[in-house]
């Protein structure tokens, strides 16, 4: 049963179609990868799903409720979590506090004054950190974490309000191969355990092929293929696009980056 239904999503910049009539469905407990060469429109798609970019056309329905036209804040409240290509965390807070902030916001406590922030929702925050294997670093500053750990922290933050849908923009980018596998395995476990849907973009085909339940291939803003890992792998058009795009299919180095969004840069 699909809880996320995307229909005819389109966006053009200055006459160029960045995303053209993209439709997709996502089921609970499904790990869906959105892949495609540089400039295929993955990040644009993501930003539209999350309310940061307004599409020209199309609809995004979460449990039948329209997401288009909502602010990222509202979308988050409707049960969508997000991680970023370049991690966005609070550098001046501890790991624990980062998670606590998400919990405080979830419990609508941002404008309350007592008790102090660092004393709130600690057990819940600890449980989330345990879930992502970060409990031992709970009291460290986020600014001193290794990049892989930041990614895990971001995952914990994104899970804080028990979202039904998790959007992950290049979760494995910039990580060592071992960490990548670990993080994706973790994500897959969470998907299973919590029965949530995850939509993620990824460059690394190893990651995609070893963890995704289903793969969606985007090229020049349009959906090229949609199917299981095996199906997509065997699809000649997909192979053509990837070879033509200058990427080796199946083997790729860490973190080549597609159209890095400006905001993400500023906060890195």
């Amino acid at each position: 049963m699909s809880f996320l239904e995307v229909r005819g999503l389109s966006k053009s910049f200055g006459g160029v179609n960045a995303v053209n009539a993209v439709s997709l469905d996502l089921k609970e407990g499904e790990l869906l990868a959105l892949i495609g060469p540089n400039g295929a429109g993955k990040t644009t798609c993501f930003n539209m799903l999350y309310g940061q970019l307004k599409p020209d056309e199309g609809s995004v329905k979460l449990n039948g409720r329209e997401l288009i036209g909502q602010t990222p804040r509202k979308i988050w409240r409707m049960g969508v979590g997000r991680t970023f290509q370049i991690t966005a965390t609070y550098a001046s807070m501890t790991v624990m506090e980062n998670v606590q902030m998400a919990l405080i916001s979830h419990h609508r406590g941002i404008f309350s004054v007592w008790p102090p922030a660092s004393r709130r929702h600690r057990p819940e925050a600890r449980a989330l950190l345990e879930l992502v294997g970060m409990e031992s670093q709970a009291e460290r500053a986020a600014s001193v974490l290794a990049y892989g750990d930041l990614k895990r922290l971001e995952l914990a933050i994104a899970l804080a309000h028990s979202p039904q849908l998790l959007l992950m923009d290049e979760p494995a980018a910039g990580m060592a191969p071992k960490e990548r596998v670990g993080l994706m395995q973790l994500t897959a476990d969470i998907v299973k355990e919590r029965n949530i849907g995850v939509l993620f973009t990824e460059h690394d085909m190893d990651v995609v092929f070893s963890h995704a339940h289903r793969v969606l291939v985007l090229n020049r803003g349009e959906i090229l293929a949609d199917g299981s890992v095996e199906e997509v792998r065997a699809n000649p058009r997909v192979q053509e696009v990837y070879l033509g795009g200058g990427s080796t299919f199946g083997e790729q180095g860490a973190g080549s980056e597609e159209g890095v969004d400006k905001e993400g840069m500023a906060d890195a």
Binding site: W76, A88, T89, I157
Partner: peptide, 21 residues
């Protein structure tokens, strides 16, 4: 307070703040 933390959060990463509501 959470308010003070949210203020610092907005400074550290407005993107993250908006993404947690």
């Amino acid at each position: 307070t959470p308010f003070g933390y949210a203020l610092r959060g907005g400074r550290d990463s407005a993107l993250r703040s908006e993404a947690i509501g």
